[in-house]
Design a protein around this nucleic acid. Sequence first.
RNA 1: GCGCUUGUAGCUCAGUUGGAUAGAGCAACGGACUUCUAAUCCGUGGGUCGGGGGUUCGAAUCCCUCCAAGCGCGCCA
Length: 586
Amino acid sequence: MEGRLREIFWDKLSSTQELSEREKVFENIVLQEPKNKSFGDLSTNASMVLASYLKSDPLSIAETLKDKIFSLWEEIEDIAVEKPGFINFRLKDSFIKEKLKEVAIQKERYGFNQTGNGVKVHLEYVSSNPTGDLHIGHGRWGALGDTLANIYNANGYEVFREYYVNDYGTQIEKFADCVKSLYLSHFGIKMPYPSDGYPEETVSKVAGEIYQKYGDRFILRKDTKSPEVDVEGLGRKAVEIMLSNIKETLSLMGVTYDNWFYESSLYEGDRFERVVDELKQRGVVYEKDGAVWFKTSNFGDEKDRVVIRSEGNPTYFASDILYLMNKIARGFDLLIYILGADHHGYVKRLQAVAKSLGIDVKRLVIIIGQLVRIVKSGNVVKMSRRKGKTYTLKDLLKEVGKDPVRYFFCTASFDTPMDFDVDLAKQKSAKNPVYYVQYAHARIESVIEKAKSVIPENISTGPDIERLLRESNKDSSSWFVDLIENLSLDRVDFSRIQFKNSSERDLAKTVIFYPDVIYGSCRNNSPYQLVQYLYRLASEFHFFYNHYRILRNNRINIDRFILALLVRVVLRNALKILNLSAPERM
RNA sequence: GCGCUUGUAGCUCAGUUGGAUAGAGCAACGGACUUCUAAUCCGUGGGUCGGGGGUUCGAAUCCCUCCAAGCGCGCCA
């Protein structure tokens, strides 16, 4: 769908209108499916947009466009002008069939496009501190980030997924102190636990594990009164353990990364000093009250931010700057950040840094996701990190399972604050939309399984298939297996496929709209659009399946059978992008 | 106090950047298995788009204002 129709559309439109501000006007013109099916397959608001520009009547413009332009459009069977000025199109069946053949040819690549043109995308998501368990919100960023990466990849971008590990700075030192306190307790040494420390439940697990595995290795001098401990080594080990825990949880979700980037690596050697020098040369930092400040307020931020504290150590913001520069230096064209709403304060200062360094702000795509609340038995579960008992992402994954968790997190847009109803997601029943979608796939598999047992001569169809069977060097049954296994439809004349009713045609149309969805969900950074499409496709298939037989009386309706095979292709491709399983049996 | 985000059916969410009668799913009610899997399908009911102004041919969408919720406003990370 995507390319051809749109190109023709713009071509024809622009060739007849001599518009000086063409682009501006055209931005608002859309070619899309009408809300109401009865209006046809596609619709455009072109005449209404042009009306305001040309200061003319939309209806008469619509008539002109219709007669002079779209009548020459060979893919269109029928054009109609409706009330306010919409121009509605009905696609020729032959066009739909032509597009269906592309599904069969492209198979698992169907839906992919090259609009990204190899642009290098850096995608950072989750990046939770290794000082605690992942909570539910991280699951949302994990599912959305991973899916978005797949979507960008499907659009021809070169995607690099990275997790930023905060293993540097005061936060980690504090964490190490907590671990030290509980670690020593295993040796009967009592130390006061830091009053503002991390939850003891988490820390004690880590301390216990270190004690189990390494015994007293981190105690340099055993002296009950003032023991000397390798706090740095202890901290590193603790981070390692926490991180492996995080990795384990993410892998339960199928969330993976190309690289785990350590904040501490930003400070290796004299890297930091060199960057500070560069910033000074550029004149974007200055000293005040013994600290080094960044002139973020010159570039849209509310105020300036401290980069180096008066004590001489860098702030967290310093790492942000280093990391941003590091990403650019590694050659990434587009930097996508997925951040929780509690981090929205970063947006302006990150953009300010980019501007001050002469980096086009458009290269930063900062997605702010709203937070997730957990609802159990109708009540909101409070998520306090301080209090020991929290409902973690791992708990959720163990309770609900990978597929529903990913699916649910991807149904809502980033902007929507969502309630995750655990009780609902837990139900492995008809209520669960993920099963609904997967069931559509399982049903197709089931039909195929059944069809294999049908004698190929009983394929009820036109002469095309018969010809294929005759011409085939292989015996007829192997040809049929080839059709099923490899979707070898290249010799089938698709123009012979018949739509005997509107639901078959609708289903075919939904299949050929898939590439548009892949494109749109990328452009809008909206994985949920893919999820909604998937649900719609499944729904239309279920309707089709319930109303029309593919197999009857030991005979195969080959038109419907092929359609089902093509639906299977799209279901699989979409499920793969969402990293959900496509079960053969349920 | 300032800033960001959100407010659409009983519930969970869409609404393609200003367009057609505001849509899905779940829940509720009523139907459909001698059938390729009923984890399915069909039908019905359900709305002052948080409230009020404004902009224009036309507003859930843009502007103003008020209300409500979440989050952020450190030489914390």
